[in-house]
């Protein structure tokens, strides 16, 4: 508050200003109130508020976001307190008294105060810019979607098979469709699931895509949020560091059931995750689901139906109409574009 014009200005309406005599040192008063209030606010933010700030600390990305919010709140608190304190002080001390219809004193410029004002506010803004920019990159892109070629990858071994006793990066493909998310695991035979489990304390690479309109994969407690665009592989990273349940929501208005497009996931121990994923893989292999799914790819073109090598289930009499969208313009013709609406 040293840069405040009130430091050398007795204030409008002040009798001292009007008479030219020595008045109270408003700047010092404000400073003495501002310092303890700011310190108290910073301590409360850091020690009381910070541990409970969203999105929590379930992953390194979430923890990073929580840290960012706390640091920026600590940065902003003295500024907010200074502004509000000055406003309240002015209302209380410099208000016009009953019967005082005189003009306030003229306001003059003060080069030193103005220079300090510009310097300090610029430093605060530059600090917020530099800190925020750095934190966008660390760790692993701060949980945001980085497109198909990430420039801030998370450290982890890229492997075709995943092992719990390692630093293997778990590949999870998130597929948005109206109105549900499904998840594919290429390191487990391309197994697909409606549920999502993740191993604790191991790096995860999300490949987010869509089969129809634009969705957004928002795993709130994981601190991960990435748009799901059709024909785009949007990569985001996170490293769980806490067991528990998280919620996955679609965060892009995607149709009438957008609001109901959510499910829950769990962070479990690496061994439990392996058992879960392996169990699903075996189950889907036996049921023929894996063979029915298209080969794992980073994106899919739903208008192209791969020709599978063998049939999964032959239900007597169930045959198709050559794959036409009902009631597609080609219906009734023996061949043609199989899936155009």
């Amino acid at each position: 508050m040293a840069q405040n014009p009130a430091v050398n200005d007795p204030g409008p309406g002040s009798h001292a200003a009007a008479s030219g005599g020595a008045g109270p040192r408003h700047g010092l008063r404000l400073l003495l109130m501002w310092i303890p209030l700011s310190v108290a606010a910073i301590l409360i933010i850091w020690f009381v508020w910070y541990p409970h700030l969203p999105p929590g600390d379930m992953t390194d990305a979430a923890s990073g976001q929580q840290f960012d919010i706390a640091v920026l709140a600590v940065t902003a608190a003295p500024v907010v307190i200074g502004v509000v304190l000055y406003m309240v002080y002015a209302i209380v001390v410099w208000r016009a008294r009953p019967g005082d219809d005189s003009d306030g004193p003229p306001i003059h410029g003060h080069t030193r105060v103005q220079a300090w004002w510009i310097i300090i506010t610029s430093l605060v803004v530059l600090w917020a810019f530099a800190f925020g920019t750095y934190q966008l990159a660390a760790p692993g892109g701060a949980g945001g979607g980085q497109g198909p070629a990430p420039i801030w990858p998370l450290h982890g071994a890229q492997t075709t098979a995943w092992s719990p006793q390692s630093n293997d990066m778990l590949q999870v493909q998130v597929i948005g469709q109206q109105w549900a998310f499904t998840y594919r695991f290429p390191q487990f035979g391309g197994m697909e699931s409606t549920g999502l489990e993740l191993p604790d304390n191991m790096p995860v690479e999300f490949h987010v895509t869509s089969l129809d309109v634009i969705h957004s994969f928002w795993a709130y407690q994981l601190g991960v949020k990435a748009d799901a665009n059709p024909s785009v592989d949007n990569i985001a990273y996170a490293k769980p560091r806490q067991l528990g349940t998280f919620v996955v929501r679609c965060n892009e208005l995607c149709g009438i059931w957008h609001g109901a497009m959510f499910n829950y996931g769990q962070v479990v121990t690496p061994a439990a995750f392996q058992a879960w994923a392996r169990g699903l893989q075996i189950n889907e292999l036996r049921a023929g689901v894996l063979a029915a799914l298209p080969p794992y790819a980073l994106t899919y073109d739903p208008t192209v139906i791969p020709q599978l090598g063998r049939d999964i289930v032959k239900v007597a009499g169930i045959t198709g109409a050559n794959g036409y969208y009902y009631p597609g313009p080609q219906a009734g013709t023996p061949h043609g574009d199989p899936v155009s609406p």
Binding site: T194, N263, A287, A292, L308, V315, A316, G320
Partner: peptide, 28 residues
């Protein structure tokens, strides 16, 4: 046209054998 069968997969792509689905996602 044939006997009733219990199946766990009706492959929509192999024979285009699926007309629609009935799904309650929140119940799995």
């Amino acid at each position: 046209l044939g006997p009733a069968r219990n199946v766990s997969v009706i492959n929509s792509w192999a024979h285009c054998s699926v007309g629609h689905t009935f799904a309650i996602p929140s119940l799995g």
